[in-house]
Design a protein around this nucleic acid. Sequence first.
DNA 1: TTTCCACAGGAAGGTACGGTCT
DNA 2: AGACCGTACCTTCCTGTGGAAA
Length: 408
Amino acid sequence: MEDESPLGRTTSICKNRDVLRPDYQPEELVERDDEISEYANIVNPILNGWAPDNAFLYGKAGTGKTATTKYILDWLHRDIEEHNIDVELNVVDINCDGHDSSYRVAVEIVNELRGPNNQIAESGHPRSKVYDWMWEEFNKLGGTIIVILDEIDHIGQDDSILYQLSRGESMGELEDGKLSIIGISNDFSFRNNLSAKVRDSLCEKEIHFSAYDAQELQSILMQRCEMALYDEAYDKAVVRLVAAIAAKDKGSARQAIDILRNAVDIAISDEANQITEDHVHRAREKVGRGRVKDIIDTLSPHGEHVLKAVTELEARDETPAKSKEIYRIYKDVCHNVGADTLTLRSVRDHLSELDMLSVLASEMKNEGLRSGSYKIHELDAPVDDAVAYFNEKSEYEDIDISTTQKTL
DNA sequence: TTTCCACAGGAAGGTACGGTCT
DNA sequence: AGACCGTACCTTCCTGTGGAAA
């Protein structure tokens, strides 16, 4: 047998794949000029030694909120250094994903500011003590402090951390320094659900990041292509196609770049010299499948059972289905895997969580006196992917999709 | 215009669990 | 060891809701 390396070969398509990674920050941000100038106006006072207003940034995922923040802060640091401005700028950058309560964000801030040998645990401490430690660390830090809370909506109902941060200065917790908050969120309703006292102080300034249209996505993709790919490896039609797919879906630059990166990878493994529209279509399917799996992996066991029930109904072409009907199938699923069943009320919560995650599409219906009001649900993710996921897991009975031609 | 259906979903509270502190 | 803390996940109870039918 010929001894062939399992690794890929060098490629004539890609000169720098890192540029296509989700965490890559380009030096120049395209299609966000208005947002950049609004943002610059907000942080500008720092250069005069003043604290900027608190700001709330909102817009859907992949619209450049985080990238613009990094871009602006890089500029701030550079300006301060180049012009020898006498400002001590300290940035505390927290992603609230995974720290999903006020308490845990406070713990994260403390741990971020303390050394690795002096960390505190995620639970067990009285809340007031954690806040005391947090202010202690801020006081040690001093200067102009900017706390960036990315995905701030993850903190949920209790916004006490925001109250603490926004009032710390006036309540004398911060002895010698200035503190401003920049909150970033995909979810505008989070702003409206904040308690009034927090909303007024957190949202002194607001910047809205609108979804990118196909034209804007195209220029973002062109910028990345020029850096990542050899000229002969792609043409405008392919870029236009990726932009059109992403614009039609969510208008997210992250998604567009994701599809492009996967198309590049597929083209490389095909040993092609150029990225074709077929590569893009295959990449789009792959990205979709990955999304379904990623979401299902985060579900609790009962969340998964509920989704299995909806997937079964979908495979039988019996969707959209009422919550009550899904509950009936859900009980069978639980019976088959030997799990206890939850009440209908809890299953309703799981259904609405799946709707929020965009795995399900739910809709309220009302037939008045005849049948009252109810909610119907169907899969919002590709059925094949969900079926494949459940059929791969040994604890579930297989779903047979061959009897129906239904695909999304 | 009023009634009423069939549910959605908020509120409150329970339990288990993993953690700290004394 | 046991008091105390925050959280996840659940149940029970109950009020609110929109629109077809009376």
